[in-house]
Simulated assay, not measured.
Amino acid sequence: MNKIVSSISVSLDGFFEGADRDIEWHSVDEEVHQHFNDYLRTAGAFVEGRVTYQLMEEFWPTADQDPANDGPMAEFAGIWRDMPKYVYSRTLEAVGPGATLLREVDRDEVCAVRDAAAGDLIVGGADLVETFRRLDLVDEYRVYVHPVLLGRGRPFFGEAADRQGLRLLESRTFGNGVVLLRYETDPAPADA
């Protein structure tokens, strides 16, 4: 069965972006980027909020046309272009080729898309992931912890009414110090 997966890079102190939306601190070298590609090419669709979609759409559709972007970066441009995308936005008027614009997160609709997809749904965008989390739609978290303390920025996880139990599926350390912590959500209460 397909899963809904949140894949996010964070600093050791839990921020997914620094002050002024800075993400220059991400340590994505060829090894990490190839790891992303190897997993993401098996996905069924990218599910994104407006901000994430616009940032990705601004760069990736033609990134492989720049000779400076070779190897895993050029490879990801093709993955991005070919992957179906579902974009949640109340303000966008239209989205690009291969993308479907949705206005509201409907749990039944998301589950139908997940079940019909050719692989996992990769959900991106902190606000959208938070909505999916509140609706109990996230099956797995892939948290890439980067070896940096930012001190301030925007934390990935917001406040929640309830505790969520997680089960560690995998941990992996990359050569550049990035650590993957892969968790599945645990339906059992965290207090049990």
Rank of each mutant, 00 (worst) to 15 (best):
A74H: 00
A94G: 04
F15T: 01
W60C: 01
H33R: 08
V5S: 06
V87Q: 02
E31S: 08
E58I: 00
R114L: 11
A74M: 02
M73Q: 12
V10H: 03
T42H: 11
A45S: 07
G125N: 00
V51K: 10
G125L: 03
T62M: 07
L102G: 03
D120V: 01
N69K: 01
H26S: 05
D64K: 04
F132R: 03
W25K: 07
M73R: 14
Y39L: 13
F132H: 01
P97S: 12
Y53E: 04
T100F: 07
P97M: 09
A19G: 02
Q65A: 11
V95E: 01
G98A: 04
A43K: 01
C111L: 15
F16M: 15
K3G: 10
R133F: 06
D106F: 10
A63Y: 09
Y88L: 08
R81P: 08
G125R: 02
L12T: 13
D108M: 11
R133T: 15
L135Q: 15
L135N: 15
F46Y: 14
T91A: 13
V113F: 12
E104Q: 13
F36C: 03
M73T: 12
V32Q: 03
E24T: 15
V123Q: 08
D22K: 04
S11Y: 07
P61M: 08
G98V: 08
R90M: 09
L102F: 09
I4S: 05
G44W: 04
G96E: 09
L121S: 04
E48H: 01
N37S: 05
A77Y: 07
S11L: 02
E93V: 10
D70H: 14
E130F: 10
G18Q: 06
D108S: 15
P61Q: 00
G96L: 09
F76E: 03
F36Y: 14
D70T: 15
E57C: 02
R103L: 05
D70E: 13
P67V: 09
I79R: 09
A45L: 04
P61C: 07
D22Y: 01
R114W: 07
E130M: 13
I79L: 10
D13K: 05
K85W: 08
S7D: 12
S6N: 12
L128W: 11
